[in-house]
Design a protein around this nucleic acid. Structure first.
Length: 284
DNA sequence: CTTGGGACCTGTGAGC
DNA sequence: TGCTCACAGGTCCCAA
C-alpha cells in the first residue's frame, strides 16, 4: 500500500491524537510482523509520552524522548486506525473486538485508541534507543526526502551516472530517494514524458530537472488527496484517499493517454517482476 | 557491483 | 456457487 503520500496522510491524522499524550496501555496482539516485535514492547511503551510524530521516507517515527523512537513501516497492507476519545464508561462497548490482523493496540491517557492493522504482515515495528534516530539503521541508509531541498536534479544525475539500470528501478531504490513506490514512480515518469525502461545513466540534465519537478508535483497532489486507496490504504478515521481517481497511467492498461494531443494507449509491462504502466507514444 | 528472481503473507477479483 | 490462478502501495536475501 503505502508510499510516501499514504504514510504522510497517516502521520497527519495521527499527529493530533498522539503528540503530547502519554501511552496508558500498549497491547501487542501477535508475535510481530516481518520481524518479531521488540522485547518488552508493551513495557517500554507504557507510560511513554509522544513528543513528536515524524516521517522519513515510508517510515513513521514517534519520538518518545528518553524512551527512544518508535518506528513503524506499513509494508504493503498496513493501516493505522484511530478510535478517538471514546467516553470512558462506554468505551469497552463501542470498541470493536480486535480483528485477526490487529497487531498492536495503543490506548492513550485520554482514552483514544490507536490500532495497527496489517493483513500481510510485511510491516515493521522497531524501537530505537534514545538519540538521533535518523542516524541509525534502517533510517541512515535512506536517500533524501523527495520533497526536501537535498533532492534535486544534480543529486539524481549523480546517482544515475553510468548506471545501466532502468530509471524506474533507480527511483524505487530508497537509498537514491526515500518514499517512492510503484504507483508514484509510474505517475512521475509519465508526467515527465520518460520511458521507465530508459537506462538511468542516459538521462539528460533537462530530463532530470523535469523528473524531479514531476516527482514533487505528483507527491504533493497525492498528499492533498489523502493518498491512493486501491485496497488497503485508509486514513486514520477510516476514510479512503482519493488520488486513485487522478491516476494518469497506474492500473489504466488499455485506457487512452490523457496528455493533450497524444492519442496513445496505456500499456502494462513487467520490470523486475512488477508492473509498470506507461504511454509508449509520449514517454521516450 | 548489478540485476533478476524468489520469499515473505493474506485477500480479492476474474475466469472457468 | 465454488475452485484456481494471478496479482497487489514493500523489502530482503541469494545466485548468477
Amino acid at each position: 500500500m503505502p508510499e510516501l503520500p499514504e504514510v504522510e496522510t497517516v502521520r497527519r491524522g495521527l499527529e493530533p491524537v498522539l503528540v503530547g499524550r502519554r501511552i496508558r496501555r500498549a497491547e501487542p496482539r501477535s508475535p510481530g510482523l516481518r520481524r518479531p516485535f521488540p522485547r518488552d514492547l508493551a513495557a517500554r511503551l507504557t507510560g511513554a509520552r509522544v513528543r513528536a510524530l515524524g516521517r522519513r521516507g515510508k517510515y513513521l517515527l514517534a519520538d518518545l524522548g528518553a524512551r527512544g523512537t518508535l518506528v513503524i513501516h506499513l509494508g504493503m497492507s498496513g493501516r493505522v486506525l484511530v478510535d478517538a476519545q471514546p467516553l470512558a464508561e462506554a468505551a469497552h462497548h463501542h470498541r470493536r473486538d480486535p480483528g485477526p490482523h490487529d497487531h498492536l493496540l495503543l490506548t492513550l491517557e485520554d482514552g483514544a485508541q490507536v490500532v495497527l492493522n496489517d493483513a500481510r504482515r510485511f510491516g515493521l515495528v522497531l524501537l530505537l534507543p534514545p538519540g538521533d534516530a535518523l542516524a541509525m539503521p534502517p533510517l541512515a541508509a535512506l536517500g533524501p526526502e523527495p520533497l526536501g531541498n537535498r533532492f534535486d536534479a544534480d543529486w539524481l544525475l549523480g546517482r544515475a551516472a553510468s548506471r545501466r539500470t532502468a530509471i524506474k528501478a533507480l527511483l524505487l531504490d530508497q537509498g537514491v530517494v526515500a518514499g517512492l513506490g510503484n504507483i508514484y514512480v509510474c505517475e512521475a515518469l509519465w508526467a515527465a514524458g520518460i520511458d521507465p525502461r530508459r537506462p538511468a545513466g542516459e538521462l539528460s540534465a533537462a530530463e532530470a530537472e523535469r523528473l524531479v519537478r514531476m516527482i514533487r508535483d505528483v507527491l504533493e497532489r497525492a498528499i492533498a488527496a489523502g493518498g491512493s486507496s486501491l485496497r488497503d490504504h485508509r486514513q486514520v478515521n477510516g476514510e479512503l484517499g482519493y488520488f486513485q481517481h487522478r491516476f494518469a497511467v497506474y492500473d489504466r492498461e488499455g485506457a487512452p493517454c490523457q496528455r493533450p494531443g497524444c492519442a496513445g494507449e496505456i500499456i502494462r509491462i513487467r520490470q523486475g517482476g512488477r508492473s509498470s504502466f506507461l504511454c509508449p507514444r509520449c514517454q521516450r
